Amino acid sequence: MSDNSIYIIKSSGEKVKFSFEKLRKSLKRTGAEHDTVESILRVVKDELYEGISTKEIYNRAFALLKKKKSYLASKYKLKKAIYELGPTGYPFERFISAILTYSGYKTQVGRILQGKCVAHEIDVIAFKNGEATVIECKFHSEEGLKCNVKVPLYINSRYLDVKAHWDSKKMDKTLTPGWVVTNTRFTEDAIQYGKCCGLYLLSWDYPKDDGLKDRIDRLGLYPITVSTLLTNREKQFLLSREVVLCRELIGDAFYLDHLGVSQTRKEKILNEINQICIR
């Protein structure tokens, strides 16, 4: 299937050549069957025009997936759903903490650590195998923004201050290299600096095949904002109660009862969430 060299406009305003293979891959990631993926690609192909936005293409593919099965559309909207964790960065910090917890870490959010010069509030600190890792989260609520080199520069200076104090106190856990996590992407300079100074960078698609989207799909740890059945008000209520993962609602419908969700609708929501979390 040829893309006929159509150029599209990304959310950042950048003009790029449209890739059917990239769209096919994002559709397959949801678990959609081959025939479903190919039928959506055919519809999108017929509706393409020069200068179409990635948002328009996404909306069309999302609507077509939702007609097939709502949980497929939920998985497809993962990137958008993470933006919906905002406008503050706190739910994103909780989300990263939850992903690490399900990866075998013990985590704390918003802990104050003393540095050599000043005290620092750390977004997430994770413990595993006698090691401690400090993780700083950079959340963007607007699409198209990237983390430039200033972010890891700033975070590395904080990390070094904490490490200087940590090492001087001979703590019982080894402090490993710091992490910088973002829901968007890093610029090339930011990646280069991270590699040079030893910071571990984690973004939507970096490192390759082990970025945020890969970890979420691999672990089945989707944010509640992916749901196509919960309203925005309901999602915000759940986030305010520190319920950030779909799987946190499985087997515990207390919060849905508290929201006054009817039995019929509750069953639909829980069925969707169970389907989303299946790996």
Rank of each mutant, 00 (worst) to 15 (best):
R42D: 10
S157N: 09
K55H: 12
K55M: 09
Y159S: 05
L27A: 07
L270T: 08
I57A: 10
K116Y: 14
F127G: 00
S240F: 02
D257F: 11
L64T: 08
R158Q: 15
G31D: 05
R42E: 10
T176Q: 14
L85D: 00
G110M: 08
V244E: 03
D214R: 00
V124E: 06
I155A: 06
T133G: 05
E234W: 08
L259D: 05
G110K: 06
S168W: 01
E272N: 07
C197P: 03
I57G: 08
R94H: 09
E267K: 14
S11W: 04
K268A: 15
S39L: 00
R215D: 01
K75R: 15
S103K: 10
H34Y: 10
G251N: 09
I99T: 06
C117M: 12
W204H: 02
K45F: 10
E136D: 12
D205C: 05
F127K: 01
E33A: 14
E84L: 14
H34T: 02
F186V: 00
T54P: 12
T225H: 01
L219Q: 09
C137W: 04
Y200S: 12
L256Y: 03
R94T: 01
E131P: 04
S39H: 02
E56W: 03
F20C: 05
N129L: 14
R215W: 03
P177K: 12
S74Q: 05
N232S: 13
D172A: 14
D214S: 05
M1L: 13
F127I: 01
D167C: 08
K169G: 06
Y71Q: 14
D217N: 13
Q192F: 14
